[in-house]
Amino acid sequence: MAEDDKYPQSTGRRRFVKGVVGSASLAGIGTGAATALNSATAPSGSGGGITEYMAMENTAGPAPRGMPQVPIEIDSEGYLKGVWPEVKEKTQQGRTIKVAETNMGGVTYSSEWFQYCGVQTYPGVAPEADQDNFLRYVGNSKFEWQNETVEKGQKVHIDDFKDYESWGNGIGSSGVGKPALATWRSQDVPPANTMVVQVIRSTNVEKMAKQDEWINASTEKGFIGNLNKCTHFCCVPSFKGLAGSAGSGAEDMIYCQCHQSVYDPFNVIKKSFVALPRPESE
Rank of each mutant, 00 (worst) to 15 (best):
H157A: 15
K221Y: 08
A209T: 10
P265I: 03
P190D: 15
T11D: 09
Q187H: 04
I50H: 08
C256P: 03
Q93T: 04
E77C: 02
G124K: 11
V99C: 05
K229G: 00
V125P: 04
L227Q: 10
A2V: 03
V196H: 12
T11Y: 06
L135E: 07
V138K: 08
A100G: 15
Q260V: 06
I254G: 07
E251H: 05
T108I: 12
Y263S: 04
V268N: 05
P62K: 08
T149F: 04
V236R: 10
S76K: 15
D160H: 15
F161Q: 05
K18S: 10
V205C: 06
G106S: 09
T91D: 14
G153K: 12
S173C: 00
M208D: 15
N58L: 05
N204E: 15
V21N: 10
K229I: 13
G175L: 12
N267S: 10
E57D: 13
F239E: 01
T219F: 09
G249S: 01
P62F: 08
W184M: 11
E148W: 00
K229F: 12
I50E: 15
N226E: 06
S248W: 03
A275T: 06
D252T: 07
P43A: 14
S238L: 01
V268G: 04
T149I: 02
E144G: 05
E144H: 03
A217Y: 09
S25R: 13
A34T: 03
S25W: 05
P127T: 08
T108D: 11
S44L: 11
G222F: 09
V20W: 02
F16N: 01
P279T: 11
D212H: 08
A250P: 03
T96E: 11
Y122F: 15
V176H: 02
T31S: 13
M54W: 09
S186L: 09
